[in-house]
């Protein structure tokens, strides 16, 4: 039984392939300007990793079931069903960590907090509304302004002893605030620590609406940022678990749901 989960997010497209219940391939590619191409590329790379790729293969014929998720979920032509990323993240996280009861997911354009029951079903959720604050995009904008690779932000933040206070919750205003702090000569690590703290604080405030229950799992691309993880732990006063590959959690959940479709 070969199934796939394809998660087309705002920044990246992810695919996970399950063969008889086991993960055999997974891939992440930038979404770029074409959702369909990104979904196909991620699936192709995952198939290559699984050693199942053949030129000219028809995904619809190859897979027994495919579920798409993420912002582009309704545009994946070879998916048989579309499910929201909130449900997929819950399934994926519960599969890897059955003790997970709260998920904090920070992606490229949104952030979510999800409450799970013991079966991995969503019991409550909250999602950022219209604002980029508290998302990966916020970090991208700030990394760009400071001319620091996005992957380095977390590590640099941990070296700060005196994080700056970024009080604006709006990405645009926070950027102005940071530019002013930079003009005042604040060290780069303090600026970056202030930025990750601002993201963590924003998300924690939002997530308090549903409450935190152990175990708390952090998923999405921003979970790779160790600075945000630490700042979140300080905010909520709990340990946070980051899975080995937090970015593919939605795709994994979609693949698990695809498998469940076949009974």
């Amino acid at each position: 039984m070969l199934v796939a989960g394809v998660d087309v997010g705002a920044a990246t497209a992810k695919a996970v392939i399950l063969s008889n219940g086991g993960i055999v391939g997974q891939a992440i590619v930038p979404t770029g300007d074409r959702v369909v191409t990104a979904a196909e590329n991620a699936t192709r790379l995952a198939l290559q990793q699984a050693g199942l790729w053949k030129e000219g293969v028809d995904f619809k014929e190859l897979f027994d079931f495919v579920i798409s998720t993420g912002y582009g979920r309704h545009s994946v032509p070879f998916a048989m069903k579309a499910v929201t990323e909130i449900i997929c993240h819950a399934k994926g996280a519960h599969f890897l960590l059955p003790t997970a009861r709260t998920i904090i997911d920070i992606g490229g354009q949104d952030s979510k907090a999800i409450s799970l029951d013991e079966k991995g079903n969503v019991s409550n959720f909250v999602m950022n509304d219209k604002c980029a604050a508290g998302t990966g995009r916020f970090l991208e904008v700030m990394a760009h302004v400071l001319n620091v690779p996005i992957e380095e932000l977390g590590k640099i933040a941990l070296t700060s002893n005196s994080p700056c206070q970024i009080s604006s919750t709006c990405t645009i205003f926070a950027e102005s605030e940071m530019v002013s702090l930079r003009a005042e000569g604040k060290p780069k690590e303090d600026l970056i620590a202030g930025i990750v703290k601002a993201v963590a604080s924003r998300v924690a405030v939002m997530a308090r609406g549903i409450g935190f229950r152990r175990d708390v799992v952090f998923t999405g691309g921003v979970a790779k940022n160790i600075g945000v993880k630490k700042a979140l732990e300080e905010e909520i006063q709990m340990n946070i678990i980051v899975p080995a590959e937090p970015q593919t959690m939605g795709a994994l959940g979609a693949a698990l749901l695809a498998q469940a479709e076949l009974g």
Partner: peptide, 10 residues
């Protein structure tokens, strides 16, 4: 849409 679809599923 994402919130409403999730709510419907819930």
């Amino acid at each position: 849409k994402t919130r409403v679809e999730t709510f419907a599923e819930l």
